[in-house]
Design a protein around this nucleic acid. Structure first.
Ligand code: ZN
Ligand code: ZN
Ligand code: ZN
Ligand code: ZN
Lengths: 303, 303, 303, 303
DNA sequence: GGACATGTTGACGTACATGTTA
DNA sequence: TAACATGTACGTCAACATGTCC
């Protein structure tokens, strides 16, 4: 039972290698309660299991966090998987296989592909009933170490436009929204400036196994002046009313125009060993021609 | 049976859910007089309010708050239910259940279905007698947040036709008219451009419990270039001669060719959980083929 | 080789056809002085003009007429070629044919291809010496009739960024800048809101035939929220200090990342008869997914 | 050789019966020069030929006009087929069979189905070369006798909208436009008020057999306040510069959202003998509910 | 300069919404 | 009141436009 693995799996960008090690559409399976025994591998061919790995630092796999309920760095939210005391799990419905489905989830890559503005249902499950008043939080973080300190926000174009902003509860700068029945609350952390959405955790409808939450993303991953093709992770956490984390799941998200196409390309690339880790420059030139100066300066002005 | 429920039911579009919580044909029952106790929150368990929170997070975004006598934004009229000092109530006669009735009211959905051009009687009741010279105002508003800032008017086709326009008191652009004895005055707010009708409040006829007002709608909810299938709310308010609001009731209205059919369809849909919230596009993707725009207006709103 | 050809070539979009009728890199050759003979009609055989017709028919619609020194509509700047009293001409240096050149000019298509932020030299020539204090003005206009009324500006992303904006004379919203020796003045027409740049006309250096002006474009033609792939024309005019137009030249401009590639593609396309007239939607059907609008603006333009 | 037959075929509404008597996609075949011998029947089962018919008035079939070059009534344009001295013919490309193709032509029904705003190519052919400067005219007429005197125009909604109107050469009230290379002229007959489009006739491109003209329709056949579901015919004529008719072809046109679907329905209906001749009321009530008063009064105000 | 990344266009299909006819 | 007529929503796909990487 090694902790912290997920940090590198869908996490903080270890020497980029795609590890197809999932077990269907679920992050965190049923029998795991607190300490998180390994989830049973349901996938036809589990590649290497965490126990194969030689070092906790480098091993990869869908796993627990060393930092249980609280993040290590104030500024960098934990992306560690954590089932927590109530056995928090997350999975996706069988997604459309169409090339231009509005969303699709690759369990092979642990990556969600979703069109901008469209809702994508995620399914939550708890093994034990949590106290009343628990909350679900969704927060995006940049995946790559180089960008992880930067807050993920909408691009100026989208933030300043009227569409989807006028008359909406969600502040225009938030990338992630939660739609659906329960009223969503949009938060901004005072210190870090990180933005997130909260909804009340509601137990599954009678007859249903999961609670469904409808996510939507308000920028493309490629949005210039915003995510700018840099991959992000989405952290979904179960929290108490006071903000204590009772569970955490995490997956990569790519918001794009053609989820099916791009997923297919990623998976092929991954199989051929050629990671396609977001087209954001590897080298360190000045920046793309149309955004000449180094992006950092422009996007994160000194506060 | 609390009068305030309507705030959440037919109110300003909290994340779309229909709450079938009405109590017959009446909006605002007798025991509520002034204050209108705050409506119970829709969510099963109330979210924590900002003041509860222990973290540095500040919640962002426009919070919904019930407004009493005055609207929060000058441009967006309040749709909050308000009994007011005289116990203002509104209800509908037992409506014809026939599929071909010219109007019908679903108390389950708090929604009026009415044919274009036909009159529909609404019944008003006051617990206490108001001062002489009070007025009744009817004003339509779009129900959905995305459209709520737009003034509800007739479509060009109907506005420019001769029928029902020639020789009429009502200006051709007004959607809602009041027919019957008392002379109606058609108003247009200088700032917002909102249109409404006013009639003198007259106490019930002797032997009658209610004052009846005859409404008529001059466009279908589906009229292209006008409401265009977007649901509206009708705000009925009791006002002093000077415009102070002494009471307010509000219900959804759908103007259509087959009130009976459509009500039935709505109610079935609601029961099956499949809201039928007006067929107006959700995704904002295209525009209807027959009503296109040059992208210009989209991309560069006039300064 | 008549100077007037450009009127139909790069002019205000007569029903789209590209007429490859240019004559090298120059717009307006020497023999044309004042009057600019009327451009020959594009159609092989001229249609009959209304005065010919024997029937009672009147032709309807805006007829295109060449305007001399003054624009017909205040809001739509004239794009008519006009040599004027001093024989105003414009041409381009022999442009690099390299695929990676920062700019290139296709005399076949009368179209400049230029990278964003890079300077592109244009050469001006006058047959007679103009009075002292004459000005050169550069103003962009959308080429297509559907967009011609819209002011050409930078996209929000570029306008709001810091790069190329901080500490610059040019206002961030201006698309076109003039670099180089003479101080440029950035103007905004009060009524129309049109933006343009002015520099003093300086006679050619001794030994040189032309006056060179360095243009630069601060957005790509493809910039979302700005030009958005809509082709533009650039109007270069010679004016008196008081604003009277003494000459006018006009060419299409495309600001893009790969001028060489795109020019080549255009020219091939043109030869094969398949105009490649800017990828902006023809049908006006939808809007791009990532730049949606609430229908409101479509249906009810602000009064 | 009976003349005038076509008047009833695609023409003036004889007791409505659909006669599937066409011969592929062409109206008027090659060997017909002036007097119009009967076109060879290519259709598998020609029903009755004109010679079957007992009276010229009632007989049906694709045929010549008694009024050769000039219309009988000033107000009702002739819809008679007329090959004329140059053997004027019209046909359609093989149209898409898709259910929602943007246009499709049923030679069985001699009827074009076309989406609003989309261009539809029609192919013209002349056996002999006409004099230089000949024109092609397209003019719509109502098909049914009851409406034939009414001028076919756009509906108020579309005429007054901005889309497709702003900055266009075509006047907003014209239903039919011609797109493409040659400049179109939009005419309005002084007496009748009839609207039509003219383009120069251009001989086929080298290697091509036909001249292609791109038509587009700016209203749906169903547009309320406009065609209002009343079927129309489109008259295509070849004319001299002075307006003398040198040839005429005519077909029914239906502008609708789903050409494929509707064609299929029509053809099935026709086979089952149940004409589907436009859903405009047969009976003579007041008008549809939403357009209460008789349309005539509203649409054609006394001039 | 080539390969690629990635949004847009526009054609199409199905299900449905909704007025009209009878 | 049922059947129909007919537009709309929206998912899907292939071709393409166009910036970026290297
Ligand atoms: Zn964005
Ligand atoms: Zn209307
Ligand atoms: Zn830009
Ligand atoms: Zn129309």
């Amino acid at each position: 039972m090694s902790a912290g693995l997920l940090v590198s799996c869908a996490g903080m960008e270890t020497p980029s290698r795609i590890v197809p090690n999932s077990q269907g559409n679920c992050l965190g399976s049923t029998n795991a309660l607190h300490g998180n025994q390994l989830p049973p591998m349901i996938a036809p061919t589990p590649l290497h299991t965490p126990s194969d790995s030689t070092s906790a630092e480098e091993s990869e796999g869908p796993m627990m966090s060393p930092t249980m309920g609280f993040s290590m760095t104030p500024c960098i939210p934990s992306t560690a998987e954590y089932a927590g005391p109530y056995g928090f799990q997350l999975c996706f419905q069988q997604s459309s296989t169409a090339k231009s489905a509005t969303w699709t989830y690759s369990s092979e890559l642990r990556k969600l592909y979703c069109q901008i503005f469209k809702t994508c249902p995620i399914q939550l499950k708890l093994v034990l009933s949590p106290p009343v008043g628990c909350l679900i939080r969704a927060m995006p973080v940049y995946k790559k170490a180089e960008h992880v300190t930067e807050v993920v926000k909408r691009c100026p174009n989208h933030e300043l436009g009227r569409d989807f902003n006028e008359g909406q509860v969600a502040p225009p700068s938030h990338l992630v929204r939660i739609e659906g029945s329960s009223v969503a609350r949009y938060m901004r952390d005072g210190e870090s400036g990180r933005q997130s959405v909260l909804v009340l955790y509601e137990p599954p409808q009678v007859g249903s196994e999961h609670t469904t939450v409808l996510l939507s993303f308000m920028c493309n991953s490629s949005c210039v002046g915003g995510m700018n093709r840099r991959p992000i992770l989405l952290i979904i956490s179960l929290e108490t009313h006071e903000g204590q984390v009772l569970g955490r799941r995490c997956f990569e998200a790519r918001v794009c125009a053609c989820p099916g196409r791009d997923r297919r390309a990623d998976e092929e690339g991954a199989r051929r060993g050629r990671g396609r880790e977001g087209a954001f420059r590897k080298t360190c030139r000045a920046g793309p021609l149309s955004m000449q100066v180094s992006r950092r300066r422009r996007l994160a002005p000194p506060p």
